[in-house]
Structures are given as structure tokens and as C-alpha cells.
Amino acid sequence: MTGRLVRHAKAGGVATITLDSPHNRNALSAGLLRELDEALTWALGESGVRVIVLTGAGPVFCAGADLKEPKAAQVTTAFPDILSLIWESPKPVVCRLNGTARAGGLGLVAACDFAIAPETASFAFTEVRLGVVPAMIAVTCLRRLDPRAAAEYFLTGEVFTARRAAEIGLLTRAVPDEDLDATVAHYTGMLLRGGPEALAITKRLVREVPAMPVEEGLRQMAALSAQRFTSEEGQEGIRAFMEKRPPAWGAVLGTTWGDAS
């Protein structure tokens, strides 16, 4: 895959997708977005893939739009599809930030289900300082961020730390650099233990249930709960628990980032 801007590999049920354009800090060029779309589509369609890890090469995860491209604004037509693929993915997506992220790169971070960054990483929504706006990434970021923090950083463009990013909901965790891979391994290992159908449905619950009226939510969730207890996957999980053995889907536990107990 020499010369490509995005690499992908599969090991132990985990697909790792790597932004590999360090010469421009993994900026969202037309070429990188095209290859990222291809890699995500591959991972989503690959039956052996249970969890997706999105990461980058070099010291920066993603610097946002590639402003050096002659038609940088046109790249934005491809970006919504990428964010939608990640957000709507039935397979959990873990963002392993290899370093700093800016602007559009934060849209990718927020679209993922989990985001783990080294404490040395920094973040900023720099759009307003260029006279543009964080329009598309607002769709994913505003679903993660504390409202006051969103106003603060969207409007000022100020740089903030990884610890602060975790405090305001942009990151799942900020960890010492040396603990990054072990932490990602912990999450991927835990995710591999969940039933694939149950994980996909639970992803939707996290997003949709808070917006439901309480009575309607309870009615719908009671029906869903009953359905899942009688489903093939649910029955297998219950049998495995009673028989003190791994469920059928638990046979694949090795991951690119190591096992987690």
C-alpha cells in the first residue's frame, strides 16, 4: 500500500485505519478523504471486523482541511459522508489520537464512540480565526461537548489541553503517552466481548433514548428488551453465562493493540 494516504489492516477482529499523510499533518485533502471513505467502507463490510480503530501517523492526528489545495472548499462535499459513516457505524469506532488535532480533525474525533489521546496532545477549533466556521463538525462535536465549553472554544479558537478535552466531553480519556496503546487495548478488548448485534443496538440507544418522552421511551425499551432476550444472540449469551463459557462471538479476542481482561 506504498504511496497511499490511508492504510488499513485487520487483526483479531479489529480493523485499524491509519491516516498516513504526515507531511501535511494528515490534513483532510481530497485524496485522503477518498481513501478514508474506502477504508471505512471496507471495515464496515468485512465480516471479520468487530471493532474499528482510527489513528494517524506522525506527531499530529489531523490538522483539519488541507488549505493548500487549490479547491480546498470543495473537499467539504466529501467530509459529511465520512462523518456519517463513523457516526452511524454499527461497529464501535475507537479514535486513537496519536497527537494533536485541529478544526476538521475534531469532527472525526467527536464522531467516534471512544476517543483516547495522549496528555501531550492539544486541540483547537481554529475556524473563526480564518474567517470560516466549524459548520459540519458542529454536527458531531455539539453532541459531545458541554454547551458552555462549546461556545468558549468555537468562538475563541483558543488552544486547550487533552485533560480539558476530556473534561468537556470531546475525549473519553486523556492518558500519559506511554499508556496510550494499553488504554486503547483495554477498550477494544472490552468491545470484542460484547455481542455484535447488541453493540449496534446499544449505540443507537445512547443517541436516541435521551430525546424520547419518558413514557414512550419506557414502552419502546420494554419491547426491545423482550425481543433481545429471545433473540438468537441473546439466547447464546445467556447459555454461555450459565455454562460458564465464552459466547460464540467471544472466540475472537486478540486485537491489534493486545488483549484486555
Score class of each variant (00 low, 15 high):
Val60Arg: 05
Ala72His: 08
Gly12Gln: 09
Arg102Leu: 13
Phe229Tyr: 12
Ser225Lys: 12
Glu215Asn: 12
Pro246Asp: 14
Gly189Thr: 07
Lys91Val: 05
Ala110Thr: 05
Arg148Asn: 10
Met212Gly: 07
Asn98Tyr: 00
Gly258Arg: 00
Ile82Arg: 04
Arg143Thr: 04
Ala11Met: 09
Ala248Glu: 14
Ala251Glu: 15
Thr202Ser: 13
Val128Cys: 12
Leu142Cys: 14
Gly12His: 02
Gly58His: 01
Ser225Met: 12
Ala162Leu: 04
Thr41Trp: 03
Asp259Ala: 15
Leu32Asn: 11
Phe241Glu: 11
Ile116Phe: 03
Gly157Tyr: 00
Thr172Cys: 07
Pro196Ala: 13
Arg204Glu: 15
Leu192Asp: 10
Gly56Lys: 09
Ala15Ile: 02
Gly258Glu: 09
His186Glu: 12
Pro134Ala: 15
Leu67Pro: 05
Pro92Leu: 01
Leu106Tyr: 06
Gly12Cys: 07
Val209Asn: 01
Gly56Phe: 09
Trp42Asn: 07
Val6Thr: 04
Trp42Pro: 07
Gly194Glu: 14
Asp177Ala: 15
Arg173Tyr: 09
Glu35Trp: 00
Cys141Ala: 15
Phe241Asn: 09
Ala198Arg: 08
Leu85Arg: 12
Thr255Asn: 12
Leu5Met: 14
Gly234Gln: 07
Asp146Lys: 00
Pro247Val: 00
Pro246Cys: 13
Leu36Cys: 02
Val159His: 04
Val51Leu: 05
Glu88His: 03
Val159Trp: 04
Pro22Ile: 03
Leu67Glu: 13
Glu158Ser: 14
Gly64Ile: 03
Pro59Ile: 06
Thr255Glu: 13
Ala135Phe: 10
Leu36Met: 08
Phe229Glu: 15
Pro176Gly: 12
Asn26Arg: 08
Leu145Thr: 00
Cys141Ser: 14
Leu54Ile: 08
Ser29Lys: 08
Met221Asn: 08
Val60Gln: 01
Ala149Ile: 01
Glu152Pro: 06
His8Met: 14
Glu69Asn: 02
Ala162Ile: 07
Ala73Cys: 05
Arg207Cys: 01
Gly13Cys: 05
Leu155Ala: 15
Ala39Gly: 05
Pro247Tyr: 02
Val93Gly: 08
Met242Trp: 09
Leu171Pro: 03
Ala30Val: 08
Val49Pro: 00
Leu85Ser: 11
Ala101Ser: 11
Ala222Gln: 10
Leu224Ala: 11
Val51Cys: 13
